[in-house]
């Protein structure tokens, strides 16, 4: 009888779960393509070549409008550059460095400890230059645009897929019946489909230093990889430590299981009662 009641209870739970799943898979508002990312999964690592290409695209294209406030040049060693290469990269930038005796602003070359400079001095200036829209900072975009679903994890959309979606689903003309506001562009992946950013990338927009053919898809992939790294720079350390922690704790758990079994041996059988 008890078993039966338990089973009925379980069936109710499963039935309710079934309803939620059935409906969850039906209503997804995002039809983003899911890509394979080398950095996904428990053993995933960043594709350093893609990161370097992504940095190149950011520097030559995106940085004209988008800041990267939370990333310092020193962190670029994670992309596979040597300390000297990072120093050289930083020195291509100029930073204000107080005033001289005449009251004029002095400039100095960038150093590894400097952060990527923002393209606009203020939000107002940024909006003025972009027909009223504010180009978002790149530092956390890789994590702030994903839609992780706790109840239905298989429906999760990752930030990188979203970025690739935005970069590759522009329509030259809005579909029939859609009226775009002034200065807006039609984009499939963007919520509401109207985006202020003009199509930012196209085939052969950059010439990759490593000779990779710069198709639009390749550029989108590289930028998305770079942006995810910028948002989660400690990912590789995190996964590596996680592996050690889980192996260690699993072994300890097995040992403690046998310790517990041994401690309980007599009591479990009730030998102490007879």
């Amino acid at each position: 009888m008890l078993k039966l009641v338990k089973n009925i209870g379980l069936m109710v739970i499963i039935a309710l779960g079934g309803i939620t799943m059935a409906q969850a898979s039906g209503d997804s508002a995002y039809h983003l393509k899911k890509n394979d990312w080398p950095h996904a999964g428990p053993f995933g690592k960043f594709d350093k070549a893609a990161l370097q290409r992504g940095l190149q695209v950011y520097k030559e294209v995106c940085a004209a409008c988008h800041s990267l406030n939370m990333v310092a040049f020193r962190e670029l060693t994670a992309l596979g550059y040597s300390a000297d290469e990072v120093k050289a990269f930083a020195s291509e930038y100029e930073f204000a460095d107080g005033v001289n005796d005449d009251g004029d602003v002095k400039y100095r070359k960038g150093l590894p400890q400097d952060y990527f400079p923002a393209p606009f001095a203020s939000e107002t200036e940024a909006r003025d230059s972009n027909s009223g829209a504010l180009p978002p900072d790149f530092s956390l975009l890789g994590k702030s645009r994903e839609h992780l679903s706790m109840f239905t994890p298989w429906n999760s959309i990752y930030g990188e897929d979203y970025i690739v979606g935005i970069l590759t689903t522009y329509h030259e003309e809005a579909p029939h019946g859609v009226v775009l506001a002034e200065g807006m562009h039609f984009n499939e992946a963007f919520p509401g489909n109207q985006i202020a950013m003009a199509p930012p990338i196209s085939d052969d927009l950059v010439e990759y230093a490593d000779g990779t053919p710069a198709t639009m898809e390749q550029i989108a992939h590289d930028v998305a990889t770079f942006m995810y790294w910028a948002a989660e720079p400690k990912m590789e350390v995190r996964k590596a430590m996680g592996l050690k922690v889980i192996i260690y704790m699993s072994i300890l758990t097995i040992l403690l299981y046998f310790v517990n079994k041994r401690v309980w041996k007599k009591v479990k059988k009730g030998d102490d009662l007879v």
Partner: peptide, 12 residues
């Protein structure tokens, strides 16, 4: 903590 650190949070 190590493999799904943001699944319980909100991307926003």
């Amino acid at each position: 903590i190590f493999y799904l650190p943001n699944i319980m949070g909100h991307p926003d």
